[in-house]
């Protein structure tokens, strides 16, 4: 049984002027436990919405979304929050570190809403990503690449079954982007977490053995629902 299984997943947004806009319509998608998959898609193709639905940040209109044996579509918001806190790690393009928290505190936040804070584990993760000497540094005291590594450590803090990465190298230069991508893939392999990455960057996509075209997957592209 796959770790993630999606069937007939749809999402529609209300238009500001009235009416509705269907942004996502994915008939079938599956990801095995521990697998690493890249989804190719240009901006505006619904990749982030897709990841947000998987993460439970958004609720689908219709369809089934089974993660780790639980159907997110049937869970209420609190249930999706808990599933996200315990099962998913999320790496954002803009890192999304809390500026008032140190590197260590940011990583601790990654586990705070799930099974609880394990400071030693948080520190070990930061050491693993090469920031063992930056535990007490605030994000503003770190370089862009270092901030990205904190975000990677945070995404792995709750020992997730699935790591979602949304254009994780989009804000990094080529060298740092490559290093960061290698790091994400390595630590996911080490922890056994599956990795689902979305990007439009061909260099990033080329690094993956398995890649799918999200634009082809999303049948809503070009359609408008009322």
């Amino acid at each position: 049984m796959p770790l993630l299984e999606i069937t007939h997943l749809t999402k529609t947004y209300a238009r500001p002027g009235g009416g509705a806009h269907r942004v996502l319509d994915v008939r079938e998608f599956a990801l095995a436990a521990g697998a690493q998959l890249a989804l190719r898609g240009e901006s505006g193709t619904g990749k982030t919405t897709f990841l947000n639905l998987i993460a439970g940040i958004l609720a689908p209109d219709t369809g089934g979304l089974v993660l780790d044996g639980r159907d997110l579509a049937r869970l209420g918001e609190a249930g999706r929050d808990r599933l996200r806190a315990e099962t998913i790690g999320y790496i954002f393009q803009t890192f999304n570190l809390l500026q008032g928290h140190t590197a260590l505190e940011n990583v601790e936040l990654g586990m705070a809403f799930g099974r609880g804070v394990d400071r030693a584990h948080a520190a070990a993760l930061l050491r693993r990503v090469g920031l063992g000497d930056k535990l007490g540094h605030f994000p503003r005291q770190l370089s862009t690449g270092q901030q990205q590594r904190v975000a990677v450590a945070r995404a792995l803090a709750n020992r997730p079954r699935l790591v979602l990465a949304d254009e994780p190298t989009g804000n990094l230069d080529r060298r740092h982007g490559r290093e960061s991508l290698e790091l994400i893939r390595e630590v996911c392999r080490e922890t056994g977490a599956a990795l689902l990455l979305v990007s439009h960057d061909e260099r990033v996509l080329a690094a993956f053995e398995h890649m799918q075209d999200f634009s082809a997957m999303n049948r809503a592209l070009g359609m408008t629902a009322s």
């Binding site: 609190a78 929050d81 936040l109």
Partner: peptide, 8 residues
């Protein structure tokens, strides 16, 4: 961000 990390 906190909500995305699982905060209710």
């Amino acid at each position: 961000i906190l909500r995305a990390l699982g905060a209710r």
